[in-house]
Simulated scan of single mutants.
Amino acid sequence: MGSVRIGVSGWRYAHWRGRFYPRGLPQRRELEHVAACFPTVELDGSFYSLQRPASYLAWRDATPPGFVFAVKGGRFVTHMKRLRGVRTPLANFFASGVLALGDRLGPVLWQLPERQRCDLGVLEEFLDLLPRSTGAAARLAREHDDKLKTDPWTDVDADRPLLHALEARHRSFEDPAALRLLREHGVALAVSEGAGQWPLLDHVTADLVYVRLHGRTRLYASGYAPRTLDEWARRVRAWHDDGHDVVVYLDNDGDAHAPHDALALTDRLTDVAVPAAA
């Protein structure tokens, strides 16, 4: 039977202070507060730039055992290189400290631009490069180049499975050949709701189902109505009942909707959702 983890995308939002974070809570303790409310969070800063091992260690230490970070892959790989010729950029990404999360490391998300169409050859080459375990990621990380501006982290405390999800935002990724490639590589095609700005691709391609909820009516801004949360709860339950592990990240951070909607969705799935640490 699969597991269900519900959380938020990112946590460092000034406008959450006093709305979700208690007034007076020091910024350095905001992740600790998130980890007390949710069993997972999507680490967003890694998308914009390579982070440092010290940061990953601090994030790991701020969370309890059993907590899981989903880590967004770098936009240099997805938006600048468009998945082409990315062996060394992937090595730099994994050498930047991702592996320092240890047993807190969950799936890695690769978010594509909205206009990027599916090129089957490029997709297959990229999927072939993705490490399927932390040990394989460490070996790839040792191929980093001098563009890595920090001390590399290429060690692991244990060799664990490493899962990946691809957030495609173009309908061409519904090509049966693309779905077959994803299934062959065990990579999840993310179910991503973006206020109608891109298609919601609902195809299960792996044991993992990765869901991102960016807003139903306004991107990153609108809250989810109770009936809409009921709808998502039914879908999550169905995936779980089919034996899938499901992660759901609310990314409608405007007006602090994301954490409150994530808690409301969790309330609808208390019998199957992994609870936050007490």
Rank of each mutant, 00 (worst) to 15 (best):
R169L: 08
R169I: 06
H170Y: 07
H170L: 07
H170E: 13
R171C: 02
R171I: 10
R171V: 12
R171H: 13
R171S: 15
S172G: 14
F173R: 06
F173W: 15
E174F: 00
P176F: 08
P176K: 05
A177H: 10
A177P: 00
A177W: 00
A177Q: 12
A177F: 00
A178W: 05
R180C: 01
R180P: 00
R183D: 00
R183T: 13
E184R: 15
H185Q: 12
H185M: 02
G186F: 08
A188G: 05
A188F: 03
A188I: 06
L189P: 00
L189A: 02
A190D: 00
A190I: 03
S192D: 04
S192E: 01
E193S: 04
E193P: 07
G194V: 11
G194L: 09
A195S: 12
G196D: 05
Q197G: 03
W198N: 05
W198S: 01
W198G: 01
W198L: 04
P199E: 11
L200P: 03
L200N: 02
L200D: 01
L200V: 15
L201Q: 04
L201N: 06
D202E: 15
D202S: 10
T205I: 08
T205Q: 02
A206R: 05
A206L: 04
A206S: 15
A206M: 03
D207P: 13
L208P: 03
V209F: 05
Y210K: 07
Y210V: 09
V211H: 09
R212L: 08
R212S: 04
R212E: 06
R212F: 10
R216W: 08
T217W: 14
T217E: 11
T217H: 14
R218L: 01
L219E: 02
A221M: 13
S222V: 08
S222Q: 11
G223P: 11
G223T: 04
Y224K: 11
Y224V: 04
A225I: 01
A225L: 15
P226C: 12
R227N: 11
E231F: 09
E231Y: 11
A233Y: 09
A233S: 10
R234P: 00
R234N: 10
R235I: 02
R235W: 02
V236L: 08
A238K: 14
W239M: 11
W239K: 06
D242L: 14
D242G: 13
G243Q: 12
G243I: 13
G243V: 11
H244D: 07
H244Y: 13
D245Y: 08
V246Y: 10
V246T: 12
V248M: 11
V248K: 10
Y249L: 14
L250T: 05
D251I: 04
N252S: 14
N252R: 13
D253V: 14
D253N: 11
D253R: 09
D253C: 05
G254L: 04
D255I: 00
H257S: 03
H257E: 10
H257L: 07
